[in-house]
């Protein structure tokens, strides 16, 4: 994960948010490019071919970029959202946001028996071409955006990212945790995932696969004790995962951008493939808290340890420059 997107994942304090939102509401056209990328696994110097979304550089890059999850997009609740897509790949690409209602323009093929099959959920950018997508009156919440073309192939190749619309009144601070998987065997020659061939070996949060012995990814977002923190979960993987916040309970308030009539207090939550969830957590003690996949995608290319694990850093109040180790309150340190 590069620095820019890590920062974006951590989200932004209140003052900055205000500025951000005033900009977003006036114009919400976002420009993306679908490009070839390379991702270097934590245990190997040999990069893996990926496809990914990047901020549109205006023309196609001359060489594969360093892959990451697509840039975090933001939108305003109730506004219209437009995404312009440049396709730098060799096959058609499109963008869908599963949680937002919209009018789709499916693309079809006719098979050998004359049966018409949808191969893309909506209109596509041809190789080297562009396409534009608009969602009217978008709803608030956390969403995935991903390729709607041959999703069995293009999504696991890396064509996904997160969209955050509006904010919840309960929480001023938020963190985003985007879960995904990589099966290197399907990437050398990009191939469709099928029931029997899909066997992911890398398990990522925010584009990073923790590997045993390496520093554990920390998500801190300047989150303070005794303040509500919104944890936004998204799963771009093809399998379900079960995030557990070790120690405290969270309050699950929404899925796919839909508020529950009654929130549910849980320390674990099923994060199905393609699902987004929003949870509120009010830490009562500062320190470092672990969040990991209890479906035990806790390995990295077969090596035990590693996988879907992050630390959430909760600062004491008032802020101090460093956090003294505290072994209490469910915190790890």
């Amino acid at each position: 994960m590069n620095r820019t997107s890590l920062l974006k994942c951590l989200r932004i304090p209140v003052l900055l948010l205000v500025a951000f939102f005033s900009v977003a509401s006036s114009s919400s056209a976002l420009n993306l490019a679908a490009v070839e990328g390379r991702w270097t696994p934590p245990d190997s110097a040999v990069p893996i071919t990926m496809w990914g979304f990047i901020p549109d550089p205006g023309s196609c890059p001359g060489a594969p970029v360093a892959w990451n999850v697509g840039p975090l997009q933001t939108g305003t609740s109730g506004a219209n959202l437009t995404i312009n897509l440049r396709n730098c790949l060799s096959e058609p690409v499109s963008i869908v946001i599963p949680g937002q209602n919209t009018i789709l323009t499916p693309q079809t093929i006719t098979d050998g028996q004359g049966r018409v099959r949808v191969r893309a959920f909506t209109n596509e950018a041809a190789p080297g071409g562009t396409a534009s997508y608009t969602w009217n009156n978008i709803k608030a919440g956390t969403f995935l955006y991903q390729s709607g073309s041959n999703p069995a192939k293009q999504v696991h190749m890396g064509l996904y990212g997160s969209l955050v619309v509006g904010k919840y009144s309960e929480a001023t601070k938020d963190v985003l945790l985007l879960f995904s998987e990589i099966d290197p065997a399907l990437h050398g020659t990009p191939a469709s995932a099928t029931p029997l061939n899909y066997k992911p070996k890398y398990f990522l949060i925010n584009g990073k696969a923790y590997s045993s012995g390496q520093p554990i990814p920390v998500v801190n977002g300047n989150t303070q004790v005794n303040k509500n923190l919104l944890i936004r979960f998204a799963n771009a993987g093809l399998m379900s995962h079960t995030p557990v916040l070790q120690g405290p309970h969270m309050t699950i308030i929404a899925e796919d951008g839909n508020r529950y009539p009654y929130a549910r207090k849980q320390y674990s939550v099923l994060l199905a493939a393609g699902k987004t969830l929003d949870a509120i957590w009010r830490p009562v003690k500062s320190g470092t808290y672990a969040l990991y996949d209890r479906s035990l995608s806790l390995s990295s290319n077969g090596a035990p340890g590693g996988g879907m694990l992050v630390y959430l850093d909760i600062k004491p109040f008032p802020w101090v420059l460093f956090t003294a180790p505290i072994t209490s309150g469910g915190a790890i340190r």
Partner: peptide
């Protein structure tokens, strides 16, 4: 058109046949 589909995207095939 709208779609009902499995988000376990590797199950969008008939054995190995895509789409």
């Amino acid at each position: 058109r709208y779609f009902l589909y499995t988000t376990n995207l590797n199950y969008l095939s008939n054995d190995t046949e895509p789409f």
